[in-house]
Design a protein around this nucleic acid. Sequence first.
DNA 1: GACCTTGTGTTGTCAAGTCAACAGGGACAG
DNA 2: CTGTCCCTGTTGACTTGACAACACAAGGTC
Lengths: 181, 181
Amino acid sequence: MTSDLDLPDDLFLFHPGDAEDARRTLSFRRTPTVLLTFAANRFTRLASREYQARFGIGAMDWRMLVMLAREPGTGVNHAARTIGIDKAAVSRSLRRLADLGLARLDDGSTAARGAWRLTGQGAALHDRILDVALDRQSKLLDGFTRAEVSAFADYLRRFLGNLDDMAADGTTQTNATQRSD
Amino acid sequence: MTSDLDLPDDLFLFHPGDAEDARRTLSFRRTPTVLLTFAANRFTRLASREYQARFGIGAMDWRMLVMLAREPGTGVNHAARTIGIDKAAVSRSLRRLADLGLARLDDGSTAARGAWRLTGQGAALHDRILDVALDRQSKLLDGFTRAEVSAFADYLRRFLGNLDDMAADGTTQTNATQRSD
DNA sequence: GACCTTGTGTTGTCAAGTCAACAGGGACAG
DNA sequence: CTGTCCCTGTTGACTTGACAACACAAGGTC
């Protein structure tokens, strides 16, 4: 609990300089949660548009491709918990991917416990988009040293951990996101 | 352009260990854009739910309260550019806030160029939520030193800057988010 | 003053994701 | 074997934000 000592609220507040009738409120430039939200929204929107235009799938479907590339045989629930979105959205995304011929159910899998994997076509598309995604990311991390990138990722992981703690406090059901590798 | 030298793609890749049929793809733990998206999605969802339950407004409306607290007399377009979301969403949010008696148009402002500000009730609600928001954020930054928080914010700002550059490259219209304070 | 241009705000439509309710299969106790 | 419980996945209703098209006022030019 170092935060109470080291992080006075004042650090994050915007103080109306020449006053008029502005109020004491959040600083946009110094408040991590604000910056985080801005950055993620803009990033997702841009990526979604580009992937849709170039490859015909959205950002959500791309995430599912990665998920299936990483863990063939994944089910809806596991995927939803891993990437932290609703299982309904996952279910619909998988249906889209199946319709496009990019993913399929394992032969032995029932409707109740589906095991999904990429088709050959899906794997090929995944590899193509992966190149683009890495290129985009390298542009977005332009100017970062390797150590800074590591620190950035470390901060985000810790933030996510605290987020899981907070979510676990609020609800009985432990719905915390699973993260591996 | 240090990134090309310092950031080999390999840094971000997940390598299937015991192989089976997993593919080379993005690492979830080490890829900043992935972590960023996860963190922001989960944060917004949790915050939205809590604010809705406790105060009857969503995360979007809360952002507008902050915007109006910071710059009374703001118009739809300026607000949309500042907080980086669509002006249509801003327009509808302002209507909601007006219906709730939390915001109002300046007396002298026309429909075409509206100047919005908080009502007394809106200002009071803003101050109440601000306390909650600061408390939430302090929980989420638990374990961070002051220096780390600064570095975190700095990375996010730089990321956002690169994002704006990328968006500017893609489109003629310079739609970059304005950030002040 | 009439015209054009520009910027602002509103609205219709669509896609995406969440929540809640439900269907259906497995596992397990008796 | 059978009933119960739990877990998984699907679907419908709803909310939110994005995109695009439009209406409209303001300002400048001739």
